[in-house]
Amino acid sequence: MTGIILLLLERESDFVRFHAMQSTITFLGITVLAWILAVIPFIGLLLSHLLWLLGVILWIVGMVKAYQGERYKFPFIGDLAEQWLGKVNI
């Protein structure tokens, strides 16, 4: 949610907009995939919980890197965020 809010509110800082876009793509994807996996008995539920754990780890890494002023890109998603950010002019 915060990624979407920052994308809508921030107009000047490419650094903030990049991290907001990367966060939005990452956590929207994790949320949708976790919901899909959760309907599969046992193994799907287990994978869903592991995916949420991965989400927490990525959340912490993303916050620490942004706080340190580093434009840290998650594998694959970071490149996607840069591409989409160039196309989105909110």
Rank of each mutant, 00 (worst) to 15 (best):
L28M: 12
L47W: 02
W35N: 13
E70A: 11
F76M: 13
A38T: 07
W84M: 15
L37D: 09
F42D: 08
L58E: 13
E12D: 14
I77Q: 02
A38R: 11
W59K: 00
L51R: 03
L80V: 11
L33C: 12
L7S: 09
A34L: 02
I90K: 10
V39Q: 05
H19L: 07
V61M: 10
W59T: 01
Q68T: 06
V88D: 07
G29Q: 04
N89E: 15
L53K: 00
I4H: 07
I60A: 14
I25H: 06
I90V: 11
E82L: 03
S48I: 07
F42I: 13
M63T: 11
L7Q: 05
Y67F: 13
V64D: 11
L80P: 04
K65C: 05
T24S: 12
V32A: 14
Q22E: 14
V39N: 02
Q83L: 12
K87M: 13
E10K: 08
G69M: 12
G86M: 04
N89R: 15
I57L: 09
S23V: 02
L46A: 12
V32C: 06
F42P: 00
E82T: 09
F15A: 03
V32F: 12
R71W: 06
V61P: 06
L54S: 03
L6S: 09
K73M: 14
L58S: 08
K73T: 13
L80D: 01
F76Q: 03
I5D: 10
W52E: 12
V32Y: 05
D14I: 02
R17M: 04
L85E: 10
R71L: 15
F18M: 13
A81K: 01
K65Q: 15
H19T: 09
L47N: 07
R17Q: 09
L80R: 02
I4E: 09
I90C: 02
M1S: 14
L54N: 00
A38P: 01
S23C: 09
I77A: 01
V56K: 00
L28H: 05
L80E: 06
K73L: 13
P75S: 06
L8P: 00
L28R: 01
L54E: 01
I5R: 07
G86W: 01
R17E: 00
I43G: 00
E70D: 14
V64C: 07
L33M: 15
T24V: 04
L50W: 08
V56Y: 12
F76K: 07
V61G: 05
K87L: 13
L54M: 03
H49G: 14
E82C: 02
N89S: 13
E70Y: 05
G78F: 08
K73G: 12
F27C: 13
E70L: 07
S13I: 08
I36W: 05
I43M: 11
D79P: 08
K73F: 05
L9H: 08
L28N: 05
L80T: 05
G86A: 04
F15K: 06
L53P: 00
E12W: 04
F76P: 01
Q68H: 07
G55L: 11
Q83R: 14
V39T: 10
T26L: 08
E10N: 08
M63F: 14
K65R: 15
L28Y: 12
V16E: 10
L85V: 02
W84K: 15
V88P: 01
L8Y: 10
I57D: 08
Y67D: 04
T2C: 09
S13E: 05
Q68D: 13
L47R: 03
A81F: 06
